[in-house]
Design a protein around this nucleic acid. Structure first.
Lengths: 141, 141
DNA sequence: CCGGATCCGTTTCGATACTG
DNA sequence: CAGTATCGAAACGGATCCGG
């Protein structure tokens, strides 16, 4: 979706940057998986139930890296592997993702909302705080 | 982006419905314009600075209508025209949009954040409440 | 094996032109 | 004014190949 982002000057409500990065559905899924599902390797993203193709995943990860939302690092445990992590900028998307998940949960036809959703709904601030806490903890590893 | 939405069953964090509707950048812009900028006619959307093409706009509006986010009505003032309005479901997207706009504003390189953004930042609840109030007021017209 | 890159047929998008 | 029709460009995604 190149066009709406191009002519973004002086918009009353900025949103174009979000469009460039999140306007793509796959990207949104990757960020959600990073933030809430603990996925971090190429393979884990590939195996996500939505079924992304490897070339698409590769491209999206590169783009996320280039806009500073994720970083690619060597796995500390296994130096042959890579792990992807959200940056601070990436983590700052938490409120957006949380609202998005909550909104979706309202209309998704599931018998019972998953525990994650219930935790989010109960206390948004607390949920974001704990996600950030987990993120910081994983930092040192 | 057809695929991620197709296999959406039993996701730990629902988001697929949001992907179907908001995963497209143009759609996001339309909803933002409806919610925060008071745009409501086909022409007003067309004239938005981002420059959407008429066929794209048409298709996106139809899709938004089919998923129950907007309704298409005759203009009460001028019966020859149509106006598009957010439904209750559409308005329930307000928190998502607000967080999205706030996040974008952080990284958008503008000299001063527009008044809207400052108002949002100051009090999110109040901003959403007033947006909803304006929406209800416009209902009776 | 893992993390991609490349190729290529198919689908979708979107700018422009056109119509009721 | 509010959309359709057309048609080239771009994106998608499955298969396959490659370096470590």
């Amino acid at each position: 979706m190149p066009s709406p982002a191009r002519h973004s000057r002086r918009s009353g409500c900025p949103i174009s940057i979000a469009l460039e990065t999140l306007g793509d559905g796959w990207t949104l899924l990757i960020v959600r998986d990073l933030m809430f599902k603990g996925r971090k390797t190429f393979k884990e993203f590939l195996q996500a139930e939505e079924g992304i193709a490897s070339n698409i995943l590769s491209e999206r990860l590169q783009r996320l890296e280039s806009v500073g939302i994720v970083v690619k690092l060597r796995d500390a445990q296994d130096a042959r592997r890579y792990v992807y992590r959200l940056t601070e900028k990436g983590m700052s998307l938490a409120p957006v993702l949380l609202e998005l998940v909550l909104w979706s949960a309202q209309f998704e036809r599931t018998d019972a909302p998953p525990a994650v959703v219930r935790a989010m709904r109960a206390d948004r601030e607390a949920f974001i705080a704990s996600a950030r806490h987990a993120w910081k903890a994983a930092q040192r590893s």
